[in-house]
Simulated scan of single mutants.
Amino acid sequence: MSVASGLDERVRDALSRVIDPEIRKPITELDMIGGVTSGPDGAVTVGLTLTIVGCPAADTIERDVREAAASVDGVTAVTVDVSIMTREQRTALTEKLRGGRSRELQFGPQTLTRIIAITSGKGGVGKSTITANLAVALAARGLAVGLVDADVFGFSIPGILGLAGAKPTKVGEMILPPINYGVKVISIGMFVEDNAAVSWRGPMLHRTIQQFLTDVYFGDLDVLLLDLPPGTGDVAISLGQLLPHADVIVVTTPQGAAAEVAERSATVARQTGQRVIGVIENMSGLVQPDGSVLELFGSGGGADVAARLSAGQEQAVPVLAAVPLSVPLRQGGDAGVPIVLSDPLDPASVAILSVAEQLARGGRGLAGRKLGFTVS
Rank of each mutant, 00 (worst) to 15 (best):
P230S: 03
T267C: 07
I249W: 13
P244K: 12
A269P: 10
E260Q: 09
T253M: 09
G240E: 00
L228M: 12
A269K: 04
V216L: 05
D222Q: 09
L221M: 12
F212G: 02
A236D: 00
V248S: 12
T253H: 11
D234P: 02
T232Y: 00
A262N: 06
L228F: 09
A246M: 10
T232H: 03
T214N: 05
D222P: 11
A262R: 07
A258I: 12
L225C: 04
L221W: 14
G240Y: 00
L242G: 13
L221Q: 13
P244E: 12
G231Y: 01
Q241F: 08
D247M: 10
S238N: 12
V223Q: 05
L243T: 14
V268I: 02
E263V: 10
A262E: 06
P229Q: 07
V223L: 04
F212D: 03
E260M: 07
L225K: 08
Q241K: 15
V250T: 12
T232F: 02
A262K: 07
L225G: 00
V223E: 00
S238T: 14
A259N: 08
V223D: 03
L221I: 13
Q271A: 03
F218L: 09
A257M: 15
I209N: 00
D215V: 12
V248Q: 11
L221Y: 09
G219A: 10
L225Q: 06
V235S: 00
A266E: 15
E263M: 08
L243C: 11
V216W: 15
A246V: 08
